[in-house]
């Protein structure tokens, strides 16, 4: 109770900022949220939620191997992320098994491989921080990697923003007017792998898919304009990260889980009260009182 009585809103926000690790966590998580939020608009419209889940789980063995070999963890994660996508495509084409089954089969296989590797490779790998994220304990080299990858993804998405929108909306038209659909497909998958790589630092492998789908889904309920959807998605992702980190600091909760829960609450709020698409349709409710 003492905590609350001495706590004003101002100090609630500023006190944590006196810690170096908190400033770093807030900065990195916001950046990661912005990247994942940006990509999220495309994934939700393309219907790639399950693909996001698959890629993010499949990076597990890559992270473990990279740590064991002393390589940047993002390199290992990226190779396994892209590898899982290639394998999914290959098995789907060469067998009669349906796509969602193939996706589930491949990513659980990769994930299991990662877990087995962790138990076998003797090193200082912290399984907990891989699975659940550790934005408060992020190292300086990880910070550099994260900033580099985040900027790369943001630049790629910004350049091909409209082409990717067209690809999600009407790939046949894109092809007909001479746009390279094959390139766009793999560009989106590459960005997905890279976003999963940076996202797992914030919330961990298990929950990173939430970073990739929840902000987009929330934004989809709030607007009918694609550009607005991207902005709302990015903002809701950043706000969730900030809320999650503060809450986990003050109440000593798991940070990754807190960030994702904040996203889920924002989604639920939109689901209930979105002006046009919420179940209570606030616009109509107010109109009724006029």
């Amino acid at each position: 109770m003492e905590l609350f009585s001495s706590l004003t809103l101002y100090s609630f926000i500023t006190d944590p900022l006196t810690h170096d690790f908190m400033r770093k966590a807030l900065l990195i998580s916001s950046l990661v949220a912005a990247v994942c939020g940006f990509l999220s608009s495309y994934l939700t419209l393309k219907g790639w939620a399950l693909m996001g889940d698959a890629v993010s789980h499949s990076v597990m063995p890559g992270v473990v191997v990279a740590y064991a070999l002393g390589l940047p963890f993002s390199l290992g994660a990226f190779i396994f992320g892209v590898g899982s996508v290639a394998l999914i495509g290959f098995i789907k084409q060469k067998s009669r098994v349906k796509e969602d089954t193939v996706i589930g089969l491949v990513f659980t296989g990769f994930f299991a491989l990662g877990i087995v590797l962790v138990s076998k490779i003797k090193s200082n790998i912290d399984l907990h921080s891989i699975l659940f994220g550790s934005p408060l304990g992020i190292s300086l080299s990880d910070v550099k990697q994260t900033i580099f990858i985040s900027l790369l993804v943001v630049i790629l998405l910004s350049i091909f923003r409209k082409d990717l929108m067209l690809y999600c909306f009407d790939p046949r038209h894109a092809k007909t007017v001479g746009i390279n659909v094959f390139f766009l497909h793999y560009l989106l998958l590459t960005c997905l792998s890279l976003a999963a790589v940076v996202g797992l630092q914030s919330v961990g492998i298990i929950l990173v898919v939430a970073m990739l789908i929840t902000p987009g889904a929330t934004a989809y309920l709030l607007t009918d304009k694609f550009d607005n959807m991207t902005v709302i998605s990015v903002l809701s992702a950043i706000i969730s990260s900030l809320i999650g980190i503060y809450v986990s600091f003050w109440f000593d909760l798991e940070t990754g889980g807190s960030i994702v829960l904040a996203q889920t609450f924002i989604f639920l709020f939109a689901f209930l009260f979105a002006p046009r698409y919420g179940i209570f349709k606030l616009k109509k409710l107010f109109a009724g009182y006029k």
Partner: peptide, 27 residues
Amino acid sequence: AYVPQNEGIDSQFPISVWDVVMMGRYG
């Protein structure tokens, strides 16, 4: 130019008439 069936497109995609028609110029 290809004009799809109404069923062949995602009518819930957040995009306006103007933006769809502008896609005709992308190429």
